[in-house]
Design a protein around this nucleic acid. Structure first.
Length: 305
DNA sequence: CTCCAGGAACTCC
DNA sequence: GGAGTTCATGGA
């Protein structure tokens, strides 16, 4: 994946421009359900632009064809944070090819073509764990609302210059995702007050186990066997196979983690009759998680909204 | 009103 | 060890 970088100031806003990207579409990346804190920027001068907060920083990703402009970043931040976050050094053309070679399937081939701009974001592990605990038996707009309320309630304010703040969508506040300490301090009642419902005690348990060390992210990162990593996460109340798999795929770089939700059960029943609703990653190879993302996105979004 | 949402815990047999 | 039920909430 060879691309070129340049640093600039546009309308008083520090930014980095990346040229020569392939298999990259900010619309697909931020609208495929892997990330809940980025929103489309209205009235952008670019073809597409999504802004939000990650790793305690506000940033805006604007795309025109194969060119990406990262507002709110200099070259240093880009190299140390956003390059990794966007997974830019992975050759998604080769990944998609290897997925389709491994599992011969017309639907999978069509899905990989349809979602060819998707990339798996490398998100903060704690944020992805809490976010997907909130996602259970919930819909995406409300998941975003709850996370937004949580960040407003106990995240840290992020300072952004007026020039940069123009890129912010009103739907996303300039607050970092809360620390485990801050979430723990809210208590179950405080979390319940944020309309988290029955998930309040689950969020609290995750924060508590993270803080007391019984949920070791270092251990999970180091665990080569993704099935065992799932088991480690499932020690938290409210984390089952689906939530654990999402957290591992989006927050721990476990590309073979294969979340099965209601949409993937439909995919199994419609297109993979041998597997049906018990479809699993074991038949999709080392990039099963990326294959899952192609199939999820295809089934969920093809044919509009 | 009922049904559903990127599920998982709990309760039965 | 599976199948059915419950859990908060809000939108369709």
């Amino acid at each position: 994946m060879k691309y070129t970088l340049s640093e600039a100031v546009i309308d008083g806003c520090e930014c980095v421009t990346v040229e020569g990207l392939t298999h990259f579409d900010v619309g697909q990346i931020f609208d495929c359900g892997q990330c809940f804190r980025f929103e489309a920027v209205e009235g952008t001068t670019h073809e597409k632009e999504f802004s939000g907060v990650a790793f305690g920083r506000f940033v805006s990703f604007a795309q025109d064809k194969d060119s990406l402009t990262v507002y709110g970043s200099n070259l240093n931040d880009f190299e140390s944070i956003w390059k990794r976050y966007l997974d830019l050094d992975r050759d998604y053309g080769a990944v998609a090819q290897s997925i389709c070679d491994f599992k011969q399937s017309d639907v999978l081939t069509a899905a990989a073509e349809y979602g060819q701009g998707i990339r798996i974001l490398s998100q903060d592990p704690f944020e992805s764990v809490i976010s997907f605990v909130i996602s259970q038996n919930n819909n995406i707009p409300r998941i975003k609302k709850i996370i937004e309320a949580l960040c407003l309630r106990c995240g840290d304010k992020i300072e952004a210059s007026p020039a940069l703040a123009k890129h912010a969508s009103p739907a996303c506040s300039l607050c970092s995702f809360p620390t485990a300490e801050a979430i723990y301090a809210l208590g179950v009642d405080g979390l319940f007050a944020l309309k988290t419902g029955f998930r309040a005690k689950y969020i609290y348990d995750a924060a508590e186990k993270f803080l007391d060390g019984s949920l070791s992210f270092e251990k999970i990162k180091a665990e080569r066997d993704t099935c065992r990593a799932v088991e480690l996460l499932c020690e938290v109340k409210g984390i089952g196979p689906k939530v654990a798999s999402c957290a591992l795929l989006f927050g721990f770089n476990k590309y073979d983690a294969f979340p099965v939700d209601v949409w993937m059960k439909k995919v199994g029943e419609k297109y993979f009759p041998d597997e049906g609703a018990s479809i699993s990653g074991s038949s999709f190879g080392e990039y099963a998680g990326i294959a899952q993302q192609y199939l999820f996105y295809y089934e969920r979004y093809k044919g509009g909204e």
